[in-house]
Design a protein around this nucleic acid. Structure first.
Lengths: 190, 190
DNA sequence: GTCTTCCAACTATCTGTTTAGTTGCTTCAT
DNA sequence: ATGAAGCAACTAAACAGATAGTTGGAAGAC
């Protein structure tokens, strides 16, 4: 019999749920499938997370910060930030799918790119960089963030073109990173 | 009793399905809801489209071309193309949600941005523009398309920041269009 | 008349959620 | 030490409502 460890069970559920929600979205995810993949009885989900949506929120909250924090925001080096975001999206595509789905299904009220729940400190940081001259003045900071984020995620699952993945060659990634850096610099640099 | 018009019934179903799929995705859409909204019996859906997925494909095919064709691709004026795409996304957000969902759920094999089913003529057009000097050389045409598309759709439902809508003020739209044009020009111009 | 279009009712299955009960660890009085 | 009590973690089964898909026939169009 498996050792009883509530914390480990909880984590296994969250991991399985992350995979299923990322793959199928909220409506497409299946409680049975998640419980099965986690090797946990379905009822545990309800005891731990209330309901399916509660489970999703737990998953989302767990990863939203990780996504945002994985790539340090450097307003004075937006090309570098964009490249970092690109790498993060390549390394953990599920997390980015998760966020995209949350936004589409309307369960993520907060704006991830705009500083998350931290109250828009990124906007102020961009303003600061504009005053310092490392970012072109005259642009709305929110637009700057929107553009940089969109460019970095141009090849992600949320994008409209080819989806970058860990399977792509290093040359592909390097080429995209280079193009991305140049494009961000050209688009927003002084 | 309603006048019998198979074509009109079909169109009403497609319209209702467009709205429901755009709002809830494939897994989240409900056949009953669609039939109800269309004022058509559910059985008609199966006689016309086979099954739920067949209905989605019909919806998708109907709009995919429209999305692509609504904004003429002008490789010599990518900033203008981007602005056009932005406007299209503001005017018909459902269509862009539809495509995003199709890509997330893995039912849209073709790459919309890369020329749709037309076999990548856009890629060649970009190459041509690069030779002509209106687009920076040294960039992979696919990357150019990916970046332009991503930038234009930075404020769309697929994006990660604030979502632009018809409700926004004209000033907002004008500001974003201006920023977008400048950014695309700076990112890809010579 | 007959062919197409339409519909109400029906079925089988799926799915989120609940319930009632079990298991094994911890605590504590003895 | 030891046995019972208490409790959190766990499970199997069932429930109710929803959902995709079907059927057989009615009714309008030609």
């Amino acid at each position: 019999m498996r050792v009883r460890d509530a914390e480990a069970t909880r984590r296994r559920l969250l991991d399985a749920a992350t995979a299923d929600f990322a793959a199928h979205g909220i409506a497409g995810a299946r409680v049975d499938r998640i419980a099965n993949a986690a090797g946990v009885n379905k009822a545990q989900i309800y005891s731990y997370f209330g309901d399916k949506l509660g489970l999703f929120h737990a998953v989302y909250r767990m990863h939203a910060d990780a996504v945002v924090d994985a790539t340090p925001f450097t307003p004075d080096d937006l090309p570098g930030y964009a490249a970092g975001l690109y790498d993060a999206a390549v390394a953990r595509p599920e997390l980015f799918r998760l966020v995209t789905w949350a936004r589409l299904e309307g369960v993520a009220a907060d704006e991830i790119a705009a500083g998350g729940g931290a109250g828009g400190w990124k906007l102020r940081a961009v303003e600061e960089a504009q005053r310092a001259g490392t970012v072109a003045a005259g642009l709305d900071p929110a637009d700057v963030l929107a553009l940089v984020t969109a460019m970095a995620l141009a090849w992600s699952a949320a994008g409209w073109s080819v989806v970058a993945g860990p399977g792509d060659s290093d040359a592909d990634h390097e080429r995209r990173r280079r193009a991305l850096r140049a494009a961000v610099a050209g688009a927003l640099g002084v």
